[in-house]
Every structure is written in C-alpha cells, then in structure tokens.
Design a protein around this nucleic acid. Structure first.
Lengths: 203, 203
DNA sequence: GACATAACCTAACATGTGTTAGGCAAAATT
DNA sequence: AATTTTGCCTAACACATGTTAGGTTATGTC
C-alpha cells in the first residue's frame, strides 16, 4: 500500500501545485504556500519531489505528452481534412477543459523553466504546431480549405483553442462538445454571412 | 530641464521594467535586476516610483487606456459593421505591435495586481470586450454577420488578435496592416472553401 | 515482536527580497 | 554666490525564499 499512497500523495501535490501556479503564478507561489495548502510543512515536500522546478517540469511535460499523443493519433487515423481538423480541435478542447489548472501552467508558466528543459519543452510545442500544419496542408491539397499562409493559420487556430483556458469554468453551461463544435464552426466557417454554396458541404 | 529629465528617466524605467517583466515575469523580476539594467542601484529606483507594484499598475493601466480610447473612437465614428470590426482589429493589432513588452504585461502579468487595482483593471477589460460585442450586435442587426453567440464570438475574436503578442517580432516580414488584414479575413471569412456569393461583398 | 519504510516534523542555513534612512555631488534656480 | 532640487549613492532593515540535516512517529511486512 505504501507505493500506492506515495503516488497518491505526489499526485495530490502536483494537483495543488497546478492550482496555486494558476492562481498566483509559479514565481509568486512559495513552497510554504504549497505546503500549507497540503496541511504539511515546507520541508516535508522534499520527500516527494527534488525541487520546486521539478514540479513545474512535471506539470508542463505531462500535458505536453497528452497533446503529442492526440495529434499523432489524429494524423494517423485518416479522415478527410475537415474531419481531421474538427477532431483535433475536439481533442484539444478536451485536454484543456479536463485539465484547467495544468493548462494554464502549460500555456503561461513554462517560461519559468530553465535550460535545458526550456528548449526541450519548446520543441514539443513546435512539433504540435507542425501537426496542425499538416492538417491544413492536407486540406489545401484536397481543395477543402482555402489557400492560406500555413504558419499564420495554424497559429491563429491555436490561439483560438487555447484562449478557452482564459474563460472556461468547469461548471459552465457549455459542454466540451458544444465548445469544440462552435470553435470548429467559427474557424471553418468564419463570421461573414454568405449563401451556403459550400463545395464540400455535408449536413 | 529637470522636469523633462525626470519624465524621461521614469519613462525609461517603465520601458525597461516592461521588457524584464515580459522576459522573466513580474514576480521573478527583482528591483535589483531592474536597477542593474538601468545602471543604477536598487534603492535609487525609489526616487522615481513609490513601489514595485506601482510600476506594474502604470504599465497595465496605460495600455488599458489606449485600448479604451480606440474602441470608443471606432464605435463613435459610424461605419457599417464590417468596416467597424476591421478598424477595431487594425487598431488592436497596432497597439500590440507597437507596444510589444507592455502588451505582454497587460495580457499576462496583470494577475499580480492586488486589490483594489485588480478589480479596477478587470472592469476596463470587460468594458473593452463589451465594445467588441456592440460591433457584433450591430453586424447581426444589419444582417451582415451570421447569428452567433455574442459572448463566445467576442472572446474568440479577442483571443485571435491577442495571440499576435505570442509570436510577433518587431522586425518580422509582415507589416501591421498585413497582419490586421489577414486576421480580419480569417475572422470574417473562415477557412472552408465556398463559392463567393457573399451578400454584402465589396471588392 | 523486530524491522523497514514512508511521511512527516523542527531547526536552521544562506541568500534574495522590497524598502527605508540618510548623505553627497552635480545641476538648476534664485 | 547662495540655495534648492535632482539623481544617485551606501548601509541596513526585516522578512521571505528554496533547501538541507537529522530526528520522530505511524504504518505495514516478515
């Protein structure tokens, strides 16, 4: 049982840390703050982790690997480009809404990593963005998407799906699926009113 | 001349502070870091400012007032809704690209404000978002925009224009106007290919 | 019942933090 | 020329920081 308890306690520690890092920021959260929230002394934290930065690393890289997994999966299983993009967006939204605290850390606090972890992390981010770009390229090849600057478009899409983290509250009225669909519609359809004579229209 | 020099020195201080706050974050930037970058001692900073937080306040509220001004201006001078939105986006992009360091602080580091300045700041942000929402409402009334959830759409638009700050470099190859136009096209037009039978199309 | 281990504790460390007090030299003002 | 103001300095403060050392207690295993 000891093994299990350790794991649980450490997971709890990481959870609380993510919560505080989101609330106050990494640098502004002290080990004493963290310990107090867990009901223990600051020194006791070091039975579970090696350093403060190790906590940040764990949170950032855990989420990075989740993102890596889903983008690989989407690009592996073949759909048409639009379905691919919709699935990627749905997965992305799911990760963010199911890991609200960790997402904030992943999106904002990673800057506090120091080398070499910092570079390693940025590489993972870039790889994910490239995954999105592949979908866009596919879509343009298949003539389903308009011709756009890939880099520009991928960044804009990421901005849109990442911004959820800024306002999403777990008990809000919109479900993950609803959010994902609205975002997909927005990204794919735009805002301007048009006669729907969409070439690849599906009901 | 003394008056002028004071102002210049203080502006220089605020500029350097914004740069460091962007690079390392507010909490991770010490007064000694800031002083060193200016070539003076930490204690000397207090001849120009009252406290560290006052610096953060000044940066955040200065930029907030710039945003307030331009949104009021756009909603004051009447265009049709699409032109309004395009102008608002252009203004927004301009503020961000012309104040890169301050923008990062405005977008991310404001969390470090303490009450009552924190609430005051959030009110200003909300007011700006409402300004965007007014444009959307106009557009739907004029039947130029599709019917959308205003809150959702305004947040999505803001996410897109704010994300510029994440990748924009002052010496990049895209001009402010280009960025603004591409973003406007993306937001208004979407990604999916369609026969352009836009009801309100203008060349 | 002896032993191992996990989970915590107290105490302390070296260093970094924002800030204040008081002074001094150069520049601006009178 | 005398005086004020500006812009900086040194020294120090009180406190917060991440982390280490070493000890204690409860829990589970043999």
């Amino acid at each position: 049982m000891s093994e299990l308890l350790t794991t649980n306690r450490k997971e709890q520690l990481l959870e609380v840390a993510a919560k505080l890092f989101k609330q106050r920021g990494y640098a502004a959260t002290s080990m004493r703050d963290l310990a107090a929230d867990l009901g223990i002394e600051a020194a006791s934290l070091y039975h579970h982790i090696k350093s403060k930065e190790e906590i940040l690393e764990t949170i950032c890289f855990d989420l990075a690997s989740k993102f890596s997994n889903v983008i690989a999966e989407v690009n592996d299983i073949y759909f048409n480009a639009e379905e691919k993009l919709r699935t990627a967006i749905k997965n992305h939204v799911q990760i963010i809404t199911q890991n609200t605290n960790q997402s904030t850390v992943f999106l904002h606090e990673w800057r506090n990593l120091s080398e070499p972890k910092l570079s390693e992390f940025m590489k993972l981010r870039d790889a994910y963005e490239k995954g999105i770009r592949v979908i866009l390229k596919d879509g343009m090849n298949e003539d389903v998407f308009d011709d756009v600057d890939e880099k520009f478009a991928s960044l804009t899409i990421l901005s849109t799906v990442n911004w959820i983290n800024e306002w999403y509250k777990p008990n809000g009225k919109m479900s993950t699926e609803e959010i994902a669909q609205k975002l997909s519609d927005f990204i794919l359809g735009g805002l301007r009113k048009k006669m729907v004579t969409d070439i690849n229209y599906k009901p």
